[in-house]
């Protein structure tokens, strides 16, 4: 088995790019205390819209923007029903998952399996000339670079800006945020819509770069659920969530590599692996609480708790 390390890293960077974007978007949303469960449908719908817009306008940039807009609009519906009206966020998100998925297949069927524009690889001058690193990190399309930039940007936003603190405080205790002059409803709306736009961008990354084109299936089905699991796996910390996303990319690639080596293990096993891992992680974290000893302390150090007010609607009395 011949594994070229540079090619492997490059492939992981590409395959994980949309997962990174979607998981980071959801992290922002959940940090504000809102669960947007519609990810899987949103990604698909945004992928379709991006491709169709790019196809009709011959401009991938416009396509990507349209994808982000689609994500924002779906998130706005989640916010309107789940935050403003105080309905179950899970219920709205779940219903939208399926509405968006079928809407994508229905509206996109005219553009199925047609040749369309996509973001071409854009090697970064000088940096792409670097031995090994250049090929691995600096010879991708602009959306993949965006996924790189989004990581420090997100971490910076969350922990080094006033806005990040406001988002975290609302997810933690909306009543206390209100007492300090913050409007929890507005913050939650904004975080949901902003996170949704990133999820939409993830969809665009699929149809315009990672798996260019549109079809039924597109190939990005199921990724939304993975992204939701990764947020938990990464315990709501942007950096750890991203580590999970790249780990998932590695698992996916291993599935492809090992297909030849271990024909008895179906590649699908590697694709579902993140879920049992996530459940396992949660159980371990649960049992470490209140326990003494080095191991429990170590687990607690590397795990975080969900935002305290996640999923709980805020109402002023």
């Amino acid at each position: 088995m011949d594994i070229n390390l540079t090619a492997l890293v490059a492939a992981i960077a590409v395959m994980s790019a949309p997962v990174v974007l979607a998981a980071l978007g959801e992290t922002i949303t959940e940090k504000a205390g809102v669960v947007n469960l519609s990810l899987d449908g949103t990604i698909l719908l945004a992928a379709m819209v991006s491709f169709v817009v790019a196809f009709e306008t011959r401009s991938p940039v416009l396509g990507a923007l349209a994808g982000a807009g689609t994500g924002a609009i779906v998130a706005a519906i989640v916010a309107a029903i789940g935050v403003q009206l105080g309905q179950s966020q899970v219920a709205v998100g779940f219903a939208l998952t399926f509405l968006c998925r079928d809407l994508a297949y229905f509206l996109g069927s005219g553009h199925s399996r047609v040749e369309g524009p996509q973001f071409e690889p854009l090697p970064v001058p000088l940096l792409s000339e670097l031995p090994l690193l250049g090929k691995a990190f600096f010879s991708h399309s602009i959306l993949v670079y965006l996924s790189f930039i989004a990581i420090p940007l997100c971490a910076y936003l969350m922990y080094r800006t006033r806005w990040g603190l406001i988002i975290r405080s609302v997810g933690e205790n909306p009543e206390a945020a209100w007492a300090r002059g913050i409007n929890p409803i507005m913050v939650r709306m904004a975080a949901t819509i902003g996170g949704g736009a990133m999820v939409g961008l993830a969809g665009a990354t699929y149809s315009l770069s990672v798996k260019p084109g549109w079809g039924h299936p597109q190939g990005c089905e199921g990724i939304g659920w993975i992204a939701l699991a990764l947020v938990i796996f990464g315990s709501w910390n942007p950096t750890r969530v991203v580590v999970g996303a790249y780990l998932f990319g590695l698992l996916q690639l291993m599935g492809i590599y090992f297909q030849d080596a271990f024909t008895t293990i179906p590649p699908q096993i590697f694709q579902v692996a993140p879920f049992p891992l996530m459940i396992f992680t949660l159980v371990i974290i649960h049992f470490s609480h209140g326990k003494k000893g080095v191991l429990a302390r170590w687990v607690r150090m590397f795990s975080g708790k969900p935002p305290k007010a996640m999923g709980r609607p805020y109402r002023r009395n």
Binding site: I77, I81, Q87, S88, A95, L99, L103, Y105, F106
Partner: peptide, 25 residues
């Protein structure tokens, strides 16, 4: 036309229901 239209109708009904029930609540 793509058969997924049925899913669109089903999903739209549920989202509308959540909206109406939420508004009532």
């Amino acid at each position: 036309l793509d058969s997924s239209l049925s899913g669109v109708i089903q999903g739209a009904c549920v989202v509308a229901a959540l909206l109406v029930y939420g508004w009532r609540k």
